[in-house]
């Protein structure tokens, strides 16, 4: 099991931390925590659930982001901030 994490204080915004547990490049656990806002919470939970069990590739993660970018409104962070952090994690 591989653990990846990254945290960031968004300029003019909020703190966010992404944590991933990978098993053979499959996302087994994902947590996005911080003092940001996401509306509605139910869709945010669905977003996390959808990320679970996918392969940790740019293509698969981007597909999930695309599915949810219209469904969730973030405040204090942007969906692009999250995407960028995921892309940074790909490099690790």
């Amino acid at each position: 099991m591989r653990h990846l994490e990254m945290s960031k204080k968004i300029v003019g915004g909020k703190y966010v931390k992404i944590e991933l547990d990978l098993d053979n490049d499959i996302i087994k656990k994902v947590l996005i925590s911080g003092d940001f806002f996401a509306y509605p919470i139910e869709e945010f939970e669905n977003f996390l659930n959808t990320l679970r069990e996918i392969k940790f590739t740019v293509k698969e993660v981007e597909t999930v982001f695309k599915e949810y970018e219209e469904k969730i409104v973030f405040s204090g962070i942007g969906i692009n901030d999250l995407k960028e952090m995921f892309f940074q994690l790909f490099k690790e």
Partner: peptide
């Protein structure tokens, strides 16, 4: 604490 926060952090 906020909904998305980790309590120990």
């Amino acid at each position: 604490i906020g909904y998305f926060q980790k309590v120990y952090e």
